[in-house]
Computed example of a mutant assay.
Amino acid sequence: MKLRLIVSTLLLITCFASFGQDKQADSKKHHSGIAEKGLVKVSVMYPYAEGKTFNMEYYETKHMPMVAAFLGSNLVKYTIEKGIASGIPNQPLSYMAIGTFYVKNLSDYQAAIAPNREAIRADFPNYTNATPIILVSEVVR
């Protein structure tokens, strides 16, 4: 009976230790940026200004999925961020929203966007009256 209790306890400890190691490895992998290193990041930033508007629901459900579909298999993932505060207390918000595409190859991205540029721009009034700022960068970490 005592041996059975010891074995059961050891099995439980082993299971919890293994679970903790898996979670720790997942956390390190997620936070280290390994999955994104070397990818091209296209950030579409919508600056905040008095009188500017942004329809997040439309952007999330219509615009971003449309652009993502144009990118096809070159697209690794995309993210949508909603601005909530400035980095400086009591100062106006810098950006209302930022949409980011992570792609494998810049030239493939440009080739996919070029024929669809007018359709993308024509959709702007459906969700914003702000002119976006676009930054194309390489993820280094």
Score class of each variant (00 low, 15 high):
G99R: 14
V103E: 01
P125Q: 10
I120D: 07
V42H: 06
A114D: 11
K28T: 09
E81L: 13
D26H: 05
N55R: 07
L75R: 02
G51P: 04
M96N: 13
N126Y: 04
L71R: 02
V67Y: 04
F19E: 08
N90A: 15
C15W: 05
D22R: 10
L10G: 14
S32C: 00
G83S: 09
K82N: 08
G72P: 01
V136L: 14
M64E: 03
P132L: 11
L3Q: 07
G51D: 03
N129D: 15
L5E: 10
G83Q: 07
Q91W: 00
N116L: 04
I80Y: 00
S94C: 04
I13H: 03
L12E: 08
Q21I: 11
F124C: 05
T53M: 03
T9A: 15
K77Y: 01
D123Q: 04
Q21Y: 12
L39N: 07
E36L: 13
Y102C: 07
L5K: 13
M64R: 02
S86Q: 07
Q91Y: 09
N55M: 08
A49P: 01
A111F: 02
S8W: 10
G38S: 05
K52N: 12
I80V: 11
G99C: 09
D123G: 01
F101N: 06
F124T: 07
V40C: 10
N74S: 03
K41I: 06
N116M: 01
G38T: 10
N129A: 12
G20K: 08
F124I: 11
N105E: 14
V44Q: 13
K82I: 02
E118A: 15
M56V: 13
M45E: 13
Q24F: 15
G33W: 05
Q110L: 15
I6S: 03
G51E: 06
L71W: 02
V44M: 15
F16W: 06
L5F: 02
P89I: 00
Q21T: 11
E60K: 14
S8H: 03
K104H: 09
I13S: 10
I98S: 05
M45Y: 00
K52T: 09
G20Q: 04
N116Q: 11
A49D: 13
A17P: 00
Y46S: 11
L11N: 03
T79I: 06
G33Y: 08
L75A: 01
I120Y: 05
S43H: 10
D26Q: 10
A97P: 03
N116G: 01
K28I: 12
M96Q: 15
K29T: 07
P89D: 08
L12W: 11
V7Q: 07
I120M: 15
P115L: 12
E57F: 03
I134L: 13
E60H: 14
Y102W: 09
L135N: 13
S43Y: 01
G87F: 01
R4I: 11
N55Q: 05
H30K: 09
L71H: 00
Y109M: 04
L75D: 01
K62D: 10
G38A: 10
K23D: 05
K82V: 08
M45C: 07
S86H: 11
F54V: 05
K28Q: 12
Y46A: 12
S18F: 12
K28Y: 09
M96D: 10
K62S: 14
L10R: 06
H30L: 13
T61M: 05
I120N: 04
S27G: 05
K29D: 12
Q21N: 10
N90D: 11
Q110H: 04
Y95A: 05
E57W: 01
